[in-house]
């Protein structure tokens, strides 16, 4: 199966990598400021992607959560609250991913409904023809 956008596939790959790194890295490891900035950038990118996919219409709650957490992550970083910043960035990313996926899913379901409608119309037409 093919994903709609190459950039989405790419985004998924990067997201997965970073996510696993974060989780596997473990709580006892020291927090890296550069890594946090990367996480924030990643979350920002994911949010933009979701916005482009019309997540505002199909997953407004998740998108709002992501945007909210992103700005709080930035604030936390400014206040040197590294752990908070990292966690908020990670959660913003996770929220944005869900928003994006929900938006795409809603659009595809729309296509399905459209096609089902079209097929219904065609079927009626065929039946009408057969009666002649």
């Amino acid at each position: 199966m093919n994903l709609k956008h190459r950039s989405t596939a790419h985004a998924w790959a990067v997201t997965t990598m970073l996510f696993l790194l974060t989780v596997i890295a473990g709580a006892c490891a020291g927090v890296n400021e550069d890594q946090i900035r990367q996480d924030i950038a990643q979350a920002e990118a994911a949010i933009s992607e979701a916005q482009r996919s019309e997540a505002r219409t199909h997953a407004p709650l998740e998108l709002r959560l992501a945007e909210d957490k992103l700005s709080r992550a930035r604030s936390a970083l400014d206040n040197n609250e590294y752990r908070q910043a990292q966690w908020l960035a990670e959660e913003a990313l996770a929220d944005a991913d869900v928003a994006e996926a929900k938006a795409q899913s809603a659009r595809t379901r729309g296509t399905v409904e459209q096609l089902q409608d079209t097929i219904q119309t065609l079927q009626s037409e065929i039946q009408r023809q057969q009666k002649q």
């Binding site: 959660e91 991913d97 869900v98 595809t108």
Partner: peptide, 29 residues
């Protein structure tokens, strides 16, 4: 924090599954 991430990931999995199943359906239709 990690419980939240876990839940979001499950939700993502569900969305993607639904999305890809719908794509297959589109092909078929």
């Amino acid at each position: 924090h990690f419980a939240y991430l876990a839940e979001r990931r499950v939700e993502l999995a569900q969305s993607l599954a639904s999305q890809r199943a719908a794509e297959d359906q589109v092909e078929q239709l």
